[in-house]
Amino acid sequence: MLSKPLNISYLSRMDYGEAWDLQKKLVREIDREERDDSLLLLEHSPTYTIGSDRHPEHLLLSPEELNKRGIALFEIDRGGDITYHGPGQLVGYPLLYLDAVGLDLHKYLRDLEEAIIGLLAEFGISGGRKPEYTGVWVGDAKIAAIGVKFNKARTRRGFVTSHGFALNVKRCVKEDGFKGIIPCGIQEYDVISLEDLTGLELDVEQIGRRIIPHFGRVFGYESDEAIRTASLRS
């Protein structure tokens, strides 16, 4: 068991800009040891985000079309290319302090993938990886995108993570958002959702609750005492 607990917050629907500002605030607090490591779970209002790879040509909609469809657009500081966030998708933002000693940033990405692969296995789904891409795949279809930032700590030797993963839960995600972009710049493969694969009607918040033990197992928070819920809006 880790000596520090992991705070879990389910925030329901939140605009992207508000969540981004919240992440930056919590990163500063975790850096100063004023807050424990945290995992934010939420859904976003319809949004496209463009990461540091910066390929705006992978956005297929004009500003007028974005406005008509009510989709926001942000250029942000995570790695990767363009992706979609919206209702029906579980977004997770782990805000964790990683000590510089023995740090393996690539392993952190693989661990995020592993937590999602563990969740898929609950449904009898074999999730996997493609060596050339980050994220979680089922066959040749991508079910979860991952893009992160490692924020250099100011008061300690190490980093505090931000951004994270987006898991497609409901069928509507593809039609509502992914058809307006070339997701992550990948043209040859499709995206898929958990509902597509299971044939079930699923609740995003319940999927969020089900991923927590997998996240805890992968990152070492294996006891009930180490994982606790927290409110960020009180």
Rank of each mutant, 00 (worst) to 15 (best):
G80S: 13
S62W: 09
A72G: 10
R32I: 04
V218L: 04
D203C: 11
R129L: 11
L39N: 05
L119Y: 01
A144P: 02
F74N: 14
E113D: 07
H106C: 05
G135N: 03
K68T: 07
V191Y: 00
F215R: 03
A115S: 15
D81E: 08
R171H: 08
W20A: 10
L73E: 12
E75W: 11
E114V: 00
R28I: 07
G164A: 12
Y221W: 13
H214Y: 14
A141C: 08
G158P: 02
V173H: 06
V173W: 02
H55G: 04
A226Q: 13
Y189E: 00
D15I: 00
S126F: 07
H106S: 04
H214W: 05
L61H: 05
D21N: 12
Q206S: 13
P63F: 14
E114S: 15
I182R: 07
L103I: 15
P56R: 08
F219V: 09
S52I: 14
E175P: 00
L61F: 14
D21G: 06
G135H: 01
H106Y: 05
E222V: 15
E201M: 07
S223T: 14
G220Q: 02
V169W: 02
F159Y: 12
L39D: 03
R228M: 07
I30K: 09
E18K: 13
N67F: 11
L26G: 02
M14F: 09
R110F: 06
I125A: 05
M1I: 06
G147Q: 07
D15H: 12
R69Y: 09
V204Y: 09
D196T: 05
N151T: 06
E64M: 09
S52Y: 15
R32L: 13
G208T: 03
R69I: 08
F123Q: 00
L109P: 06
G127D: 00
K24W: 12
Q23D: 09
R157M: 06
E195N: 10
I117G: 00
S162G: 07
K25D: 15
K179G: 01
K152T: 09
P56L: 14
L90C: 01
G164V: 05
A230V: 10
S126Y: 04
K174Y: 10
S231K: 12
F215I: 03
E65N: 06
S126H: 03
W137G: 00
V169A: 04
R110Q: 11
I186V: 08
R209Q: 10
E65K: 15
L232Y: 15
P183T: 06
S3Y: 05
L194C: 10
L11M: 09
Y93T: 10
Y84C: 13
Y93A: 01
R228A: 15
